[in-house]
Design a protein around this nucleic acid. Structure first.
Length: 563
RNA sequence: CGGGGUGUGGCGCAGCCCGGGUAGCGCGCACGGUUCGGGACCGUGAGGUCGAGGGUUCAAAUCCCUCCACCCCGACCA
């Protein structure tokens, strides 16, 4: 590809709308342009990278027996009504105005529809179906360049199995394929246990990349022996003690004491003696959650436990329901609430909590004697420095970007859409499904996040738009032009992917800066300085290392360096 | 959807607060010339509904109102 005629609009200045490095560099390198919030045009250089990533994904999916589909993005809304997901997705689903159609944000429905019509027998399974296709989601807040867009390319696959054991196998095959894909794309990633969320199902894992730009929070053991999304992460923390004897309840005046820290200081007691009351709506039901001391309630865990949308109860409603304000709420004598507690408090006594009367607390609470607790569950948010559940190392809390997600779906969709097969005994059974996703653009952005320096992108050969950036330093010197042209045609002949900078009126410095910005693994630099000594320079983008080789050795050297 | 910010030639910005003369600067672009190994230089030139609509005023990029777009934080995110 000749730069003089090619379309690679590089820019010197960092665009003001781009905050994270990958976004800045993708714009500066002429890979993408923003059309509208969360909607990007991919220019030729960026699209070459995209096609390479797609190719890698296809190869690894094919290797586990995946069969590639091409499914429509326009889906009849009826299909989505049947699974209840028009409501679930809400405003995140794009609706078509002049037809009863929606733009598909994912494809469980269509896959299920095909399976329902054509998978009739246990003999038809297992199946792994995948596609690489544009998804549409009306994200309320697109951000971070291509990391969260309203239109994006996704590899989504679906496994169809007859048994849960078989699902495990399909799931494991995907996990292996995903590891290979991300490794081949040159990414340093880790795998975390994740929440199944509203997708339902029995298990899920996320493939994450550590990054300050990430939207997810991950608890990671310092020795990497444990990793989990904060939504599900647990840790080893001491439980509350149960004293042999429970003393009688006692009301204490605690004027102006609102927070747990103030209460601990006022009463001069340890946090572990205090039971914090957190009050939420679970759909329409008021719920009081007891946490030890200042433990932070994890809303994701609460929502998963109650299978409901949860949100804090508003101050006015709280007073109406309890007769007191936040800071004085407690479990004793509270009517009309579902009361649950964190596992840490299981069976505890001698606790202090709110009296449901402003400025008063109760001492000597015995949860078993004085309250009706509907259950003890893990509801706390882990904190940095706590011991991982395996006891091996301390946890640190990091931000992460989700590259891929694998799900054991089960029968949620096959039940909803009656996708059944006949087993060996002729009985109809629902197909057991898994679903698996990879964000293609995220691979690209993450690769840049992990592989760049102050001068630009540093591509791995595997997904670099070109392997060699050939620079004719000056087009004024006939010999340099002749040698550059010769090397260019030699490289093309040898099947080397080469971008050739033969722009006539661009200064050498500009060409070097562009080459570093665009980040091809090798730069082959033809200048009069070295040519006159019978040499051509090869520069490794990653290390900055330079070497001089004879012109007739260039092809051999390039091939060796790229191997 | 809450909070904050920004919209001025292709890009990056100044001007706005505190109302007045042909709306500036850098980059890029075109033409001519000089340069040619780390984002060259000189000269000439093209290019603007100042996000949109309305209002106040003799006069609005600037003041007021409404709307829109984009960015950041939060909420949300199979």
């Amino acid at each position: 590809m000749r730069l003089s005629t090619g379309f690679v609009p590089t820019v010197k200045e960092t665009p003001n709308d781009a905050i994270i490095p990958s976004h800045q560099l993708m714009i500066r390198a002429g890979m993408v342009r923003l059309l509208s919030a969360g909607i990007y045009a991919w220019l030729p250089l960026g699209y070459r990278v995209m096609k390479k990533v797609v190719r890698i994904v296809q190869e690894e999916m094919d290797a586990i027996g995946g069969q590639e589909f091409h499914l429509p993005a326009l889906n009849p809304i009826e299909l989505w009504e049947e699974t209840g997901r028009v409501k679930d997705f809400g405003d995140n689903l794009f609706h078509v105005k002049n037809r009863p159609l929606v733009l598909a944000p994912t494809h469980e429905e269509v896959i299920c529809w095909i399976a329902k019509n054509h998978i009739a027998s246990y003999k038809d399974m297992p199946q792994i179906w995948y596609q690489i296709q544009t998804k549409f989601r009306n994200e309320p807040r697109p951000r971070s360049g291509v990391l969260r867009g309203r239109q994006f390319l996704m590899k989504d696959s679906y496994s169809l199995d007859t048994t849960w054991d078989a699902l495990d196998k399909s799931y494991d095959l995907h996990a292996e394929a995903y590891k290979k894909i991300f490794t081949r794309c040159g990414l340093k990633f880790f795998i975390v246990g994740a929440s199944s969320g509203a997708m339902g199902g029995t298990g899920s894992q996320e493939f994450m990349l550590e990054s300050e730009s990430g939207e997810d929070t991950i608890a990671l053991a310092e020795d990497n022996s444990y990793a989990a999304n904060i939504e599900v992460a647990t840790s080893l923390v001491p439980k509350a003690v149960r004293h042999p004897e429970s003393k009688p309840l006692q009301e204490i005046h605690t004027p102006k004491v609102k927070t747990i820290d103030e209460l601990a200081a006022f009463l001069k007691v340890d946090h572990s003696k205090l039971a914090k009351s957190v009050v939420y709506w679970a759909d329409q039901t008021p719920v009081l959650v007891l946490m030890m001391g200042n433990d932070e309630l994890n809303e994701s865990k609460l929502a998963a436990l109650l299978k409901a949308n949860v949100r804090p109860i508003e101050p006015d409603n709280l007073r109406a329901l309890t007769g007191a304000d936040a800071g004085s709420i407690g479990p004793v004598g509270l009517k009309g609430f579902k009361i649950i507690a964190d596992k840490r408090l299981e069976g505890a006594n001698g606790l202090i909590s709110g009296a449901n009367k402003n400025d008063y607390h109760l001492m000597n609470i015995d949860l078993e004697r004085d309250c009706t607790i509907d259950g003890y569950y893990d509801l706390r948010t882990v904190q940095a420095g706590e011991l991982a559940p395996n006891g091996k190392a301390k946890l640190r809390i990091v931000r992460g970007i989700e590259l891929g997600h694998i799900f054991k779906l089960g029968t949620k969709y096959s039940d909803a859409l009656s996708a059944t097969y006949l087993d060996e005994k002729g009985q109809a059974k629902p197909i057991i499904m898994g679903s698996y996703g990879i964000g293609i653009e995220r691979i690209i952005a993450c690769h840049i996040e992990q592989n760049h320096d102050e001068n630009g992108i540093v591509w791995d050969k595997a997904i670099a738009p070109y392997h060699v950036h050939l620079i004719a330093v000056s087009m004024k010197t006939q010999e340099v032009v002749a040698l550059s042209e010769h090397l260019y045609s030699q490289m093309l002949g040898a099947g080397i992917e080469v971008m050739y900078d033969e722009r006539a009126s661009t200064s050498p410095g500009f060409k070097f800066k562009d080459a570093d910005l665009l980040g091809m693994p090798l730069q082959v630099i033809v200048g009069e300085k070295n040519r006159s000594k019978g040499k051509v320079e090869i520069k490794l983008r990653k290390t900055g290392e330079r070497m001089l080789v004879a012109p007739d050795q260039v092809i051999a050297s390039v091939k060796e360096l790229l191997s």
